[in-house]
Amino acid sequence: MTAYLIRRILATIPLALGVVLVVTISFDLIPGDPAALMLGEFATPEAVAELRTSLGLDASLPVRYVNYVIDITQGDLGLSLRERRPVTDILVETFPYTFQLAFAAITLVLLVGLPLGLLAASRPGSWIDNVIRVTSLAGLSMPVFWTGIVFMVIFSVNLRWLPVSGTGTWRHLILPAVTLALPSIAVIARMTRSTVLEVLQEDFVRTARAKGVANRSLLYKHTLRNALIPVVTVLGLQLGQMLGGAVLTETVFAWPGVGRLTVFAIFNRDFVLMQGLVLVLAMLYVFVNLLVDLSYGLIDPRVRYQ
């Protein structure tokens, strides 16, 4: 087990190097000079060139990349080009908001999506199954910026139950979390339904049924255990995306999280900030995946880690 964990953690190194390399290369490919953007409308070409040199943008791609990697090993994520403060400070400020939102949303997904899927699977073909299938698709197809605004109009303006946007109290978290969770609830409900139905068709379940195991305990014990593995996998993917890409929800609800920071970094060509961001996000992705893999062992004791 320990050896497994160590191997998994070591495996993140090439991934981290890879994502940083992609960022480094991509900023050479996309037009837009961070120095020119910083200096604004009247900057002379000389001033821009001077700033480029002082920011270290002049160095060739391999040099910049290697320098950055050396800095990372010393725990230094560099200085944001635009904000001129340590990237680490910015990330430490921003990630807590993203964690709050993502975990609130993923909790909702578990609490609502999973039961809905099981309910649908327990009576396949019934009206309740159809209702769940159709409404979950509707949830999946509405752009979050639209559902977000509609929720605002209903719950904040008309009913006055919740604040429109921003941070502060737990009440500020409700609308963005629900909005972010909605498509994932739909995905998880669908996944749960179809995997449960699939497992129910498996030979061992049929055997158990033929042997006369009581229906209830059968569903819970055998089916759920086998059906949960793909569901957890997808849940992990959803969580990964929520951590990295809740741009729209954050924008609509003025939530100061990582998604907006990412857009800021790319629109301002602040690639030092971008490198730090994707690095941390890649680590999180690996961590979430590791959790998912470890959860397989909890769900199904037959799973072994080598």
Binding site: G240, V247, V278, A282
Partner: peptide, 14 residues
């Protein structure tokens, strides 16, 4: 994994 670990909108914007 590299693609998945990359924030998806970022990739699209790039």
């Amino acid at each position: 994994d590299l693609f998945l670990a990359f924030p998806y909108l970022l990739l699209a914007i790039i």
